[in-house]
Design a protein around this nucleic acid. Structure first.
Length: 199
DNA sequence: CCCTGATTCGC
DNA sequence: GCGAATCAGG
């Protein structure tokens, strides 16, 4: 794999979004996180640190001349490294909901950058045995927060996202699966047993 | 142990 | 320029 314009673009975008090098590498495919990090540095967009400059000191960097790329040939719209444009990416954080006001928020999908996910153990039609099993697992859950999830942690949501009583299972997930063994069981039910389940 | 980014350096 | 190996952390 080589760094085509498109791939570099994806890299830049994801990096600026705060995605981790490994996540980017996985997205791109064909490269390791090392490759991504190396590229990031070569591109000079290492510092994810831009803003955060409310300090009194005016000129933080009396740079030399105001040299700018004259853009030799390509009259591109100049996607140059904007000085202080990118915003810190408003984290999709939910207010802890001070057990008082319970604003029925239209639960938006709360999920990293991954593509799969949003299950919803709620109003499902699962066998009582399976449910009991899940309950049992929930007691052992690591209660991870969104930020703590990785490719190897179970992403089964537990609790109500609208309250602070919400977390993810977090137990070791099955290789290649988003959930732990127990949750894989209830998440991926064969059509056969699923069908015909009377209401 | 899982993960993160940073750096080095042979290619 | 590239990225594996390595380093330095959390």
């Amino acid at each position: 794999m080589s760094w085509t314009d498109e791939r570099v673009e994806t890299l830049k975008r994801m990096w600026s979004e705060g995605q981790s090098a490994s996540a980017i590498a996985k997205e791109l495919g064909g490269v390791t996180r090392n490759a991504v990090i190396g590229k990031v540095h070569r591109l000079g967009l290492s510092n994810r640190t831009e803003e955060a400059e409310a300090a009194p000191a005016a000129a933080p960097e009396p740079e030399k001349k105001a040299e700018r790329k004259p853009a030799p040939a390509a009259p591109k719209p100049a996607p140059q490294p904007e000085p202080v444009a990118a915003k810190p990416a408003p984290a999709p954080e939910e207010e802890p909901a001070t057990q008082a006001a319970y604003t029925p928020q239209p639960r938006r999908s709360i999920v990293p950058a991954g593509q799969p996910l949003p299950p919803q153990p709620s109003a499902n039609e699962i066998s009582p045995e399976a449910l009991a099993s899940v309950r049992e697992v929930e007691k052992k859950s690591r209660r991870l927060s969104l930020m703590e999830l990785t490719e190897r942690t179970c992403k089964w949501p537990i609790g109500d996202p609208a309250t602070d009583k919400f977390w993810f299972c977090g137990l070791p997930s099955q290789p290649g699966k988003p959930y732990c063994e127990a949750h894989v069981g209830v998440a991926f039910q064969p059509m056969s047993s699923r069908r015909d389940r009377r209401r």
